[in-house]
Structures are given as structure tokens and as C-alpha cells.
Design a protein around this nucleic acid. Structure first.
Lengths: 201, 201
DNA sequence: AAGAGCGATATATTTAAATATATCTAATTT
DNA sequence: AAATTAGATATATTTAAATATATCGCTCTT
């Protein structure tokens, strides 16, 4: 199994996810069994060219034979076109969705337990994170926080879980704030109310 | 048989010829039977990706999946890198070889038949054509002229064949001269003596 | 808890590429 | 004329992709 085939597998998977398609949806569009797509994406199949072309058609990818000396030029074109639109858009949208979900849960919980300062603290942190809109985002921390909130109980352990979630999200926030300070290519920060408009739009 | 596969077949063949390899030579380098290469180049085979990658390795071609929106940018890169070196170089070299061969034959014949004006005329035309050095070249006319010269006899038919060859080459010359006038991307014309140096170099 | 969605895995069969070899035809070279 | 080279075509066999279906395990939603 060559490096190129692994790379193609990765590219296919990334493109599919970028389009928000499940393997079954792609299967229908491309006329390929889902089981085959699973194997393709895991790099277990040495595709025929025609099969790859058909998958590429659905995923807006074109198969090309490029002279070796033009390879790096082509790669930088591919890279810049890849980074500027789909992945950036996709990642932020996904992250925002999860943040929104987290905020709703925390808000509900804060109303139930108005005297729990850990919850208020977490809520403030989540709100602040919504001000950030950049590609490099740590969604694991958001999911962990969501789990802590979902399973919250007014016990010592429950409170500790909320504190830990808060600490984790603050770490993420600091990393992002640090990234903004260092980077010259990050998009401007958007206010929370603008974010709300987006979700309701 | 899809358009892409035909295009790949053409690309493989062109790259092989650009490198001056026979199918048997490529066969050895790529570890693929010559019979298979023949079928591949005729577009009769829906290759596996790994097979295409291996052929590409030998022919200095890389297989890439390019986002559709970047396709035209990539194609212009490929085109410019293709036109600047191998195809231009290859076509001109091949054409020059055949022109040289033709000129040698005509020269010999003109010495044998110094009174035949058609031959003198053809010789002048061939000499003039050697002043042109551009990719788009009609080699068929050169081959036809060579055949006429090779099989020349001092008969009416033989003289007609020479006249026809001359007319054909003049048509080519005119098309090339016209092409130079219209195009902004053609290389400068090189003098014949420079051409001679090249062949002796 | 049941149902739905998702990706991974299994089984059986068909299809065509890949492999190995040989030969033919045409053109060129010796 | 004989030999060599080049590309196309043929035959037989093996290999793995493609096709068709089904099911499993995990996660999320209702």
C-alpha cells in the first residue's frame, strides 16, 4: 500500500467530510457501495482510475497527472485553495454548533442552580469563547465540558467536573488569544450578538 | 472509456516519447509488460491507481487530486511547464532531425540533377523552413517530401511529386509565418547557421 | 429502551486489470 | 537480404477491484 494511495484515501475522506456527507450519502451520489467507500477511505483498496474519477466528480476533485517539476507549485495552489474556504468554514461552523449547544445547557443549569458559582463561571467562559472564530479550534474540550454539564449533580464531584471544564476551556481560550496575537492571518473577532444573528439567520 | 482515461493515455504516451523511451524500455523501467503499455497508451485499460503511480514515477509525473476550483490554475501551470521544455524541445528536435535528413537528400539529388529547377526550388524551401523553430510543426509534409525525394526519378511523375512536396512545404511555411505574426508567445526565429551549430554540437 | 445514523467488517460472485509469453506487421538499420 | 526495433495483438492464468447484500458495534436522538 503506497504512500500515494494513503494520501488519496485521506483526501477523499477529508473532501467528503468537508461537504458534510456520510459515507452512505456519498455512496448514493457516486454509485459505489458504502462498504467500498469505507475500505477506500481506510486505504485498503487500490482503486481503478475510473472509480477514483467518479468519486472525485462528486467531491469536486479532479485527477491530474502533473510533471514532477511543477508539483510543488501545484501543491501550494491546492493548499491555499483548501485553506481559504471549505475547511475554515466547516470547522468554525461545527465548533460554533457545539459551543451553542454547550451554552444552552450551561444556561439551563445555571437557572436551576443560581447559587453555584462554578456554573456561573463556566457560563462566562463559554460566552467569551464564542467571540473567537478561527479554524484551529479544540473541540474536545467543548465536548468534555458538555458531558460534565449534562451529567452534573450538586455534589463535590459534580462541582469539580464543572471547575475542570471551566479550566480546560480557559486553556483553549488562552491558546486562541495567544494565536491571535502572534498570527497575521487570522480573521477579525466577531461579537457574540453577531454570532446569535448568524444562528437565527 | 472516459475522457479522463483517454487523456491519461495521451499524457503517458507523450511523456514516454518526450523521454525518448520505447515501450519496451519503459516496460523494463516500470516493470510492466510492453503489451500492457501498448494497451494503456491506446486507452484500452482502466488502470489501477498503483499502476498509474508507478508509470508516473518513471515518467516524472505525479498523480494528484486537485480541487475543481483550482483546476484551471493548475492546468496553466502544467501547460507552461510543459511548453517551456519537453514538448517544445522534443518537437523541434524531432522536426529538425527530419528537416536535416530531407535537406541532405535534396542536396544530393540536386547535385545529380542540377538542371531540374523543381529540385532547386524544393531545396530553397527546405532551407527556409529551417529558419523556423516553433512547437506547432507539420511533420507529415516533411515526411511526404522525403518520400518523394527518395523515390525520385527524372520523369514527369517524379517532377510532379517534387513540385507537390514543394507546394506542401510552402503551405506549412506560410502557416508558420502566419502563426508568428498572430501570436505573442512564440519564440524568436533562429538563423540557419545557429541551427547547424546545434546539430554539430 | 427503541430507533436511527454512521462507519467498519464479512460473504459471495462477477469483472477486468495484471502477469507472463508469444507472435505479427511495419519500418529502419546493418 | 537479413537482422533489429517498435508497437499492436493474442492467449492463458492469477489477482484484486467492483458489485450486491447483510450485519455488527457504537453513538446519538426520541
Amino acid at each position: 500500500m503506497s504512500y500515494v494511495i494513503e494520501h488519496i484515501a485521506r483526501t477523499i475522506k477529508a473532501a467528503r467530510e468537508a461537504k458534510g456527507l456520510s459515507q452512505r450519502a456519498l455512496s448514493e451520489k457516486a454509485g459505489v457501495p458504502q462498504s467500498h467507500i469505507s475500505r477506500i477511505e481506510s486505504g485498503a483498496v487500490d482503486l481503478r482510475v475510473s472509480s477514483l474519477v467518479e468519486l472525485g466528480r462528486v467531491l469536486d476533485l479532479e485527477l491530474m497527472l502533473v510533471p514532477r517539476k511543477a508539483t510543488s507549485a501545484v501543491q501550494s495552489i491546492v493548499r491555499s485553495s483548501a485553506e481559504s474556504a471549505p475547511s475554515d468554514d466547516d470547522t468554525s461552523r461545527q465548533a460554533l454548533k457545539e459551543l451553542k449547544r454547550l451554552q444552552d445547557s450551561v444556561a439551563g443549569l445555571t437557572q436551576l442552580y443560581p447559587a453555584v458559582t462554578e456554573l456561573a463561571q463556566l457560563q462566562r467562559q463559554v460566552r467569551e469563547l464564542q467571540h473567537f472564530r478561527i479554524p484551529r479550534y479544540d473541540q474536545e474540550a467543548i465536548r468534555d465540558a458538555f458531558k460534565a454539564v449534562k451529567s452534573f449533580k450538586d455534589t463535590t464531584a459534580g462541582l469539580k467536573a464543572i471547575s475542570d471544564a471551566y479550566a480546560q476551556l480557559r486553556t483553549v481560550r488562552n491558546a486562541l488569544a495567544h494565536g491571535i496575537a502572534d498570527s497575521t492571518e487570522i480573521e477579525p473577532v466577531r461579537p457574540a450578538y453577531s454570532l446569535d444573528e448568524d444562528n437565527n439567520g
